[in-house]
Amino acid sequence: MDVAVAKYGRRLAMVAISGLAVIPLLLLVMRSFAQRWFWPTLLPSAWSLRAWQYAFSPTAEILPALATSLSIALLVTLLAVLVALPAARVLAWQEFRGKRAVIFALLLPVLTPPLAATMGVHALFLRYGLTDMLLGVALSHLIATVPYATLMLTGSFSRLDPDYEAQARTLGANHFSVLRYVTFPAIAPGLAVAASFAFLISWSQYLTTLLIGGGRIVTLPLTLVSFQRGGDEAIAAALSLVFLAPAAAVAFSVARFLREGK
């Protein structure tokens, strides 16, 4: 009896949670096709393809922006993981003086108000001539992504006993084999989450991209914000969905990977 109730309750909770995620999306889809939608009608009273036609017209320049966003996010993901892996390994496995200070310093970019931090980063990048180009934008995104990636991987490494690596080596595994058969499988779930976080954080940067990219590097959030502030709700909704699709795809595939790994 209790088991049945618990099962029922869990299913109900699942429905409620997925409803919370799906209903706003559904509203967004309706909004993107709505021509007239005034309170109190439940559904739009007139529909139109206008917003979608605009989103895929050359005027909107969505496809180039999508390509730019994607290359930056992938580059950022790669670099963030490259920096975070060795850092997380040391933070998880080794004790040293000032470790807490290092962790605090790592968290600083996340704790500082974004506007102030971005203005400072912009001034610094100007001095080093890193503005107005894709690589500079990717580097600036790293500031927000490396802390998350490192902390997540630190968690993975601390759940893995370093002795496993030693044991594999004792049994004659070379360095590559240790990585491939011991370390990587153990941290893979954490790695997937860290990488997807890095991707998603880079994907949604607005002010950093605008300042460091100087308007020369146009990503999706840049094209989207104009319409959100401009009040054209249908186009803002259509562009939001275009913006959301790759992010959702990343999140779903990571979730799937984690489930299959179990």
Binding site: M119, H122, A123, L126, R127, T131, L207, L210, L211, G214, G215, R216, V218, L222, T223, V225, S226, Q228, R229, G230
Partner: peptide, 22 residues
């Protein structure tokens, strides 16, 4: 065209660039 949601962002960018001597 440089898509601009709010020209205040551009003014901030210029002020920063002036500060950095660009």
């Amino acid at each position: 065209f440089v898509p601009t949601g709010d020209v205040a962002d551009i003014v901030n960018k210029l002020l920063n660039e002036k500060g950095a001597g660009k």
